[in-house]
């Protein structure tokens, strides 16, 4: 729920930042901008449609032998990406959903061409992953489409994961998770400043993309398809430190009061208790960021992920059932106990 734009504009007028006489005109401009944003399910429909369309288009290109081989395909893909980017930014696309969807589908086709071409041409996973990562960073910054930016952040995280696994970085999947979690945390924490910066339209989609990717990586680490046997300790420690830092900043002057110390103590103890279940602290961190930013989507994502994580954690064989039971019961009791204590303290 946001305040009305007219109130914000009149407040700016009283502070001398805008002309009060111009408020009506500015309201109309802002209204137009707000109307262009779409609910999540419309974006989901658009994104899914773009994927399906790009699948057909890629199949067509291969059937008519229009795609060169090896590095030629990557170069072809780069041209397609540039063309899609130019189309998306063109004035004609602003008022045309068809052109916007075509640009998005073209972007996906270009991505597939680049990945395919680099993989075939160089036969070098780190080079391929590095190029893909660069393409995603450029897309996040310059491709003016929220769905594309969301997907680009996910592809970027996947590239980082591929690099970690190729270089056999110890606990590579956890490191990739932490990098994406760090990125997400920085974006959501500094969102107002970033929105006033150079790439404001990229902030929300990339922020959501990084959170989604980070949580997906954590879920993947739990499933452990590549048999990396992650312990979760690294992720839990870093997440606990992150949540503790956020709590420290949020408490401000109250951090030395009784309730403040209780909250800091709770975060520390919860982090210790759930050291082998990093999903709990990941969900807590997402909840704090989401509430601070006023983003219901983040709150919903956090709760959905937590339910999924607990179900997957139950079936995970790395931790014995009795230990799982102990840590979950202890954590639950800790949280409920603190709630009772804080209520008593008023």
């Amino acid at each position: 729920m946001r305040p009305p734009l007219v109130r914000v504009l009149r407040r700016l007028g009283r502070e001398g930042l805008v002309d009060l006489e111009a408020v009506s005109g500015l309201l109309a401009v802002g209204d137009q901008g707000e109307r262009h944003s779409a609910p999540w399910f419309v974006r989901l429909l658009v994104g899914f449609g773009a994927w399906v369309a790009s699948g057909f288009l890629v199949a067509f290109l291969f059937m008519v032998d229009l795609v060169p081989e090896d590095l030629g395909a990557a170069l072809f893909g780069a041209f397609v990406l540039a063309g899609a980017g130019a189309l998306r930014r063109s004035p004609a696309a602003e008022g045309s959903d068809f052109l916007q969807q075509s640009a998005l589908a073209g972007w996906l086709v270009g991505q597939l061409m680049v990945v395919f071409g680099m993989a075939e041409g160089t036969d070098s996973p780190p080079v391929t992953a590095g190029v893909v990562l660069l393409v995603q960073v450029a897309s996040m910054a310059f491709f003016a489409d929220a769905v594309a930016r969301f997907l680009a952040s996910g592809f970027a995280v996947a590239s980082v994961l591929a690099l970690m696994l190729h270089w056999k970085v110890p606990q590579g999947d956890e490191v990739a998770f932490l990098l994406s979690a760090l990125g997400a945390g920085l974006i959501w924490w500094h969102r107002p400043a970033l929105l006033a910066g150079r790439f404001p339209q990229a902030v929300n989609p990339v922020g959501y993309g990084l959170v989604f990717s980070a949580l997906a990586l954590l879920a993947l680490a739990l499933a452990d398809p590549l048999e990396q046997h992650p312990s979760g300790i690294l992720a839990s420690t870093a997440l606990s430190a992150g949540v503790l830092l956020m709590a420290w900043c949020l408490l401000g002057e109250r951090r030395r009061s009784g309730p403040g110390l209780a909250v800091l103590g709770l975060v520390l103890l919860l982090g210790l208790a759930t050291s082998s279940a990093p999903g709990v602290m990941a969900a807590v961190g997402t909840l704090v960021l989401g509430f601070r930013a006023g983003e219901r989507g983040l709150l919903a994502l956090a709760w959905s992920f937590l339910l999924f994580f607990l179900a997957a954690f139950y079936y995970n064989l790395e931790v014995p059932l009795l230990e799982k039971s102990g840590l979950l019961l202890a954590s639950g009791a800790l949280l409920l106990g603190l709630r009772a204590l804080l209520r008593r303290c008023g």
Partner: peptide
């Protein structure tokens, strides 16, 4: 009309709206 980030960002570059005004509007809206 809610003061969403999209609505405020649409004011960027508009005559009479400075970058400082946009920053302050974002602070008020968020």
């Amino acid at each position: 009309v809610p003061a969403t980030p999209e609505a405020i960002l649409a004011l960027r570059g508009h005559a009479g709206v400075s970058p400082e005004a946009v920053r302050r509007a974002l602070e008020l809206a968020l």
